[in-house]
């Protein structure tokens, strides 16, 4: 019995990264906010590097609640979309055609503490991956991962053909 030779790591990485790039390119608003995506295997962490035009309260230099909400919503949507794309990429499918993005039905954002003038990070957990609807929980932190400054729960409509 012979076992297939595993693909070289660089081939796998290139395929996964180009799939992620294609997904990023689909969402101009993420680029507008400066959101970056860090991938470790199938896990994604989003980064919102601090910028002066993300500030809501000039006196405190606090992040605008809207920028925080947008960051959380982008994270939820991209992680959900990535969960759809990942198996296609692993199966060796074409990575340039991104499936239709999940649509937000509703999102509730909790502001736990004020967003400081520094980089923010977020991770999303898919709490229910349904055929039509999915639920996602997202947490964002700055200095300390155990002290999130905002979190959100959202419901999304999944694209038809998945």
């Amino acid at each position: 019995m012979t076992r297939a030779t595993p693909e070289p790591v660089q081939v796998i990485k290139t395929r996964r990264n180009s799939a992620l790039e294609a997904l990023k390119a689909r969402v101009p608003y993420a680029a507008y906010l400066g959101v970056e995506f860090e991938r470790h295997g199938d896990e994604l962490t989003t980064v919102l590097p601090f910028r002066a035009d993300l500030v809501g309260n000039p006196a405190l230099q606090a992040l605008h609640g809207g920028a925080t909400a947008a960051f959380l919503e982008i994270t939820a949507q991209v992680v959900l979309s990535w969960s759809v794309i990942w198996p296609l990429v692993e199966a060796g499918g074409a990575v340039e055609s991104v499936p239709t993005l999940p649509k937000t039905i509703d999102i509730t954002v909790d502001y736990l503490r004020s967003g400081l003038p520094r980089d923010a990070y977020a991770r999303a957990k898919i709490t229910r991956a349904g055929r039509r609807f999915s639920s996602v929980h997202v947490q964002a932190w700055q200095d300390n991962v155990d002290r999130p400054f905002a979190m959100a729960t959202g419901h999304f409509m999944m694209p038809d053909h998945v």
Binding site: Y29, Y32, A70, E73
Partner: peptide, 24 residues
């Protein structure tokens, strides 16, 4: 504004921008 598009396929503004509008 095209910079606020959430999905290039549709050209629809991202929900996050609507959230920022609502919050403000």
């Amino acid at each position: 504004d095209e910079a606020l598009i959430g999905d290039l396929e549709t050209g629809v503004i991202h929900g996050g921008a609507v959230s920022a509008l609502m919050d403000t």
